Computed example of a mutant assay.
Amino acid sequence: MIPSNYPERTGKHFIRYCNRQTPQSGDISIAGAILQHTGNILELSQERLSAEAHLSGASISRFIRRCGFESFQSFKNQFERFLSQRSLRRSKHFLAAYHDQSDMDVGRQLYDDAVQNLKATMDDLPLPLLEQTARMMCQSHTVYLVGDGRDLYCFYSLQLDLLCSGRAAYFYNVDEVSKHTMPPMDSRTLVLLLSVNPFWYHEEIASLCDAARKARACTVLFTQGSPSEDVKANFCCRYGRPGSVNDGYYSLYFLAQLLSVLFYRAQ
């Protein structure tokens, strides 16, 4: 992750790190103990955390640094801001969007939002670019699928299809991108950059595009709305409805399924 003091970024990064831990790792004991205190995180001391996780204070400090924080106090401050700000934002959204609606009405609205996003994608479907992307997948030796966890889940079937056809296909979580941890790329590498919001991770995506260009790899950006000015992908596939954010995952999954079909037809 590119260093950031933005609570939404650092908070999500921490949660993703916790979600990746296996039951056998020592870090899962620390993560589990911390997540028991989301309601009173500022009151949690490093000594109490050490006791509850059954690990040393030094182990706690190393865990905090691996999560991208300079100190335990810095972690607590940023994580508390993330939790409180996100809770307030979501409460305001639910109040504004669903006030005085029945549960059935809420269900219908969510359904309509999903359908409208898919319809917008279908109405302006960039089929020539998708067909070109499928041909580039056929010609590539390595394909990187880059996005956050939700983006990547949408493209899991495509990854399997690429692997079954003899291509090296990797998931690369955009949260792990930094200027010092770029994946190996060359002229036979294709990078598919997945995003539902042009603002999210634009620094990481811009850095990855720069590295790909230097390695003569090709990049295709999938995004709702206009990409950030610092993102210089070779191709840009716009879909969905700008500003709709989470509804874009319905369209992203649809595009992944369509790419799988086009890929098999192009072989």
Rank of each mutant, 00 (worst) to 15 (best):
T10M: 04
Q101V: 01
R188Q: 15
L110D: 02
R167E: 03
G248A: 10
V231Y: 03
V196Y: 07
I30H: 05
E131T: 12
M104G: 06
I2T: 09
A168H: 15
S157G: 12
Q159K: 14
S61A: 13
R9G: 00
R66L: 11
C18F: 06
H202C: 11
L35T: 13
P184N: 05
Q139S: 13
E204H: 09
E47Q: 13
A217G: 07
Q85L: 10
F14N: 01
E70G: 03
I64Y: 01
Q101E: 09
F72A: 07
G243W: 15
H37K: 06
L208Y: 06
A206M: 13
A212Q: 02
D105V: 06
R241S: 15
D100Y: 05
E131G: 00
L118Q: 05
V191C: 07
Q24H: 13
D103V: 02
G147L: 09
F171W: 15
L221E: 01
S71A: 08
A31M: 05
L158K: 02
A31L: 05
D175K: 03
S4R: 04
L259I: 09
S260Y: 02
S25V: 08
M104K: 12
I60C: 02
R66D: 06
F63W: 08
F69W: 05
C18I: 05
H37A: 03
V261Q: 09
Y201N: 15
D123S: 15
D103Q: 02
T219M: 02
L83I: 12
